[in-house]
């Protein structure tokens, strides 16, 4: 049985993917499928809500790397919110905050889309 799940919710400005459990090399394909599903349905403004995410390894981080370029080319973005501090530490360890909007609340992430804030382009 998988110890990971994704739930979808639509807001006006974005689709919210609430991730729950442990994201590792075994469960990362589930997040990959979820993002692909959104993309195929034309939903390209995506918020990953990590409030209930208890663990992430490089396989989980890899899902974001695999899709961000394509989603941004289509005019959307993936924004990440509500991470527990130990999960944020893993993103931070590898420099993800320089490339991805990682904010504290879902409201903040929605606001970035509502205000048309451009994705972080980096250096």
């Amino acid at each position: 049985m998988s110890n990971f799940s994704v739930a979808f919710r639509n807001a006006d400005a974005a689709t919210i993917l609430s991730v729950c459990g442990e994201l590792d090399a075994h469960t990362a394909p589930e997040l990959e499928s979820a993002i692909k599903k959104c993309r195929d349905e034309g939903k390209i403004n995506l918020i990953i809500n990590g409030h209930d995410l208890d663990y992430i390894s490089s396989a989980g981080l890899g899902v974001f790397m695999a899709f961000i370029e394509e989603i941004r080319t289509l005019g959307g973005d993936i924004k990440i919110c509500a991470l527990k501090s130990k999960i944020f530490d893993v993103f931070d360890l590898l420099g993800f905050p320089k490339i991805y909007h990682i904010v504290e609340t879902e409201e903040e992430a929605l606001s970035l889309f509502e205000r048309g804030i451009q994705p972080i382009q980096g250096d």
Partner: peptide, 22 residues
């Protein structure tokens, strides 16, 4: 480099770096 991997749409290549950093 996460930015370079993202541009190339690669999902792997971070594990060894994580081990070395930690």
């Amino acid at each position: 480099d996460v930015r370079e991997l993202s541009r190339k749409r690669k999902s792997g290549g971070l594990g060894v770096d994580i081990i070395r950093r930690l």
